[in-house]
Design a protein around this nucleic acid. Structure first.
Lengths: 300, 300
DNA sequence: CATATTGTTGCGCTATTCGCAAAGATCATT
DNA sequence: AATGATCTTTGCGAATAGCGCAACAATATG
C-alpha cells in the first residue's frame, strides 16, 4: 500500500462503505494496511478526513470534500488506463504509415480501402515521400520499404518477395526487336527508375550468373507510375518491380524482356519500432497486407 | 517508486521533457527508477507509450493520449490535495457548533458576529438544543458544554471558569429582605433552572463549607434567559451562571445574594473530536471564545 | 575515431510494508 | 450489569519490494 494513489483508493473505499474492514475486503488488503494508509494520508494532508470510532466511521467536512474529488479522480484514472489499454488492444485511433512514393509500393494504396472498410474505427495517415523519415522521431507506426533496412532499432517483417523485371510494350518490341543478352540492353532505350544509389546501374541475375548494365535512355524518373505509363506508351525498356507490372503483363499491355533475368530478390518489408508492444492496429495492417500480397494480385 | 501513481508521474515527467535523466532530476529519483516505472506501466497497460532511443524519446499515439489525460489528472490530484489541505489549514468552510440551548451558553452567541466578521470565509452553523448530540456521528466540529463530559472519545478544553451564583433584583430584596444563610433560602421564592439531574437541589459551597438547599418557588424553566428576565422582574432569587448575570450585576439591575456562597466550579468547556488533527477553524473559534470569556464580559 | 551522454538491466542491500496478534473501545444481548 | 462480539489502532518480526550502484549497449558530438 501507501503511495498517494493507494492512500486515496483506501480512503475512498472506506468513506464509501463507512467501514475499514469492508474496505479492506473490497481492496483485498488487510485491515491494518487500510488503517495505516488513511492515517498516513491524513498526516500528509494535516487534516482529519474520517472521524472514527470502533463502531462508526463518519466523514469530516474536509473528508467529504476530498471524497467527492477523490472518487471522481479514481474513476478518471481508471478511465484513462482503460482508454489507453483499449487503444493498444483494439483497432482504433490513427495508423501512421510511411512509404516511399514512386517506389511502386503505392500499389499498396489500392488495398487500403478494403482494410479501412474492415476497421471502421481506424484512420489511416499514409505519408508518401522519398525523403528519409525517422519512424521513431516522427511518430510513424510503420513504414513500407523495399530492400535492406538501415535502422537497427527497427523491426522488419517481410511482406512479399520482390524483384524487378524488364518489360516493354508489344509495339516497342515489334519496332526495335528483342535484346538477347543483358549487354544488348546498352543499345536500347532504357527507362530508369531513379531510386537509391546508382539507379542507372542495373544488376541482373539468372541462375547464379550476374551481369551489370549501364542503363541509358530517354527517361529517368523517381516515380514508378510515370515509368509505367511511358513504357505502355512505347518509350522503351523499363526495369520495374514485379508486382507493379503484374497487371499489365496479364492484360498483355506489356511483355517481359530477357525473361530469365531479374534483379536480386530484395523483398517488400513492413518496418516498425519496438517489438515489445506492437499495437493491434499495426499488427492487423501488416497481416492484412502480407496476406494480400501473397495472394494473386488483383487487377486494377 | 512504483504504484500506479508514481508510474504515472514518472511517465508524465518523461513525456514532458522527452528525457529520462531530466525527469529523474526533476522527480529526485534515480534514472533507473524512472526507467523501471515507465516500463512497468507499459507492461501493465500492454501498450508502448514512449518510443525511446538512447538519444531521443518520442511519444506513441497511445502515449500522447495517456500523457494528455495523465497530466490533467495529476493536476487535479494536486488540486484536490491542496484544497483539502487548505480546508484544514485555512479559515474556510462551515463550522458546526452544538450548544445546549437555555443553559446560558447561548450568551456565546453574542460573541459570534465579531468572530464571523474576522473570518469572512467562514460560515457558522450553530445548533442549539437540549437533546444529546453525538458530535462524531452527526458531524459537529465542536460543542460548548458546561460541566463534566461523558464521551471519552472527545477532547475537552476549558474555556472559562463557571459557577452559579445567587441573584435577585434590588426591588425584590427591598421587599423581602436578604437571606443570611443558605437554609434561609427555603423560605424565599426560588427561580429554578431545570437542567441536569436534581435541578431543585442547590449545592452551595463557601470556603470548604457545603450546604444543600431544596429550592422551591414560583418559576421553573430550562432556559436561562427566561429566569433572568423573571429575576429582573422581581420574581425571586435565581441560581444562575456567573457569566450570564455579569452584565446585570454591573448595571445594578441585579444584586448578588449570599455573596460568599456559590455552586462548585464546573467550567465551560469546548468539546471536540480527535486531538490529532484539529482544523484551523475549530482552533480559531475556541481560542477566540476562550479569550473573550477571560476578558471582562462586554455589556449587552 | 575517441569521448561523453543516455536508457536499460542485473545485483546486493536497505527500508518499507505487510500480516499477525493484542489492546482499547463500543454496541448488543442475555 | 455483565458478557461477548465487532471494529479500529498499534507494536513487532518477517518478507517483500524498491533503491542505488555499476556495467552495458547504443548513439551523437568533437
Amino acid at each position: 500500500m501507501s503511495s498517494r494513489f493507494d492512500e486515496l483508493s483506501a480512503f475512498v473505499e472506506v468513506a464509501r462503505r463507512h467501514s475499514f474492514v469492508g474496505a479492506a475486503r473490497q481492496l483485498d488488503k488487510h485491515v491494518s494496511a487500510v488503517s495505516r494508509a488513511v492515517a498516513t494520508l491524513e498526516a500528509r494532508l494535516g487534516v482529519r478526513l474520517l472521524q472514527r470510532t470502533t463502531r462508526s466511521v463518519a466523514l469530516t467536512e474536509a473528508g467529504r470534500d476530498y471524497f467527492q474529488r477523490g472518487e471522481a479522480l479514481l474513476a478518471e484514472f481508471d478511465g484513462a488506463e482503460a482508454a489507453v489499454r483499449d487503444l493498444g488492444a483494439s483497432l482504433r485511433g490513427t495508423l501512421r504509415v510511411s512509404a516511399a512514393s514512386g517506389s511502386g509500393v503505392i500499389q499498396i494504396a489500392g488495398l487500403v480501402p478494403e482494410f479501412l472498410a474492415a476497421h471502421p474505427h481506424l484512420q489511416l495517415d499514409l505519408q508518401l515521400g522519398n525523403r528519409y523519415v525517422d519512424l521513431i522521431e516522427e511518430g510513424y507506426d510503420l513504414a513500407i520499404r523495399v530492400g535492406a533496412l538501415a535502422d537497427s532499432r527497427l523491426i522488419a517483417r517481410k511482406l512479399a518477395p520482390n524483384r524487378r523485371v524488364l518489360v516493354a510494350s508489344p509495339a516497342w518490341l515489334e519496332r526495335h526487336g528483342r535484346p538477347r543478352t543483358p549487354a544488348a540492353l546498352q543499345r536500347h532505350a532504357c527507362l530508369v527508375l531513379d531510386i537509391g544509389t546508382h539507379p542507372q546501374r542495373w544488376q541482373l541475375v539468372r541462375r547464379g550468373a550476374e551481369e551489370h548494365v549501364d542503363a541509358r535512355g530517354p527517361l529517368r524518373s523517381n516515380n514508378v507510375l510515370a515509368l509505367l505509363a511511358a513504357c505502355r506508351g512505347d518509350a522503351g525498356i523499363a526495369l520495374l518491380p514485379e508486382f507493379a507490372v503484374a497487371a499489365d503483363l496479364r492484360a498483355g499491355r506489356l511483355r517481359r524482356v530477357l525473361a530469365g533475368w531479374a534483379t536480386p530478390e530484395h523483398g517488400v518489408y513492413a518496418v516498425y519500432p519496438s517489438a515489445r508492444f506492437v499495437p493491434a492496429k499495426v499488427r492487423a495492417f501488416i497481416d492484412f497486407i502480407a496476406q494480400r500480397l501473397r495472394a494473386p494480385t488483383v487487377d486494377a
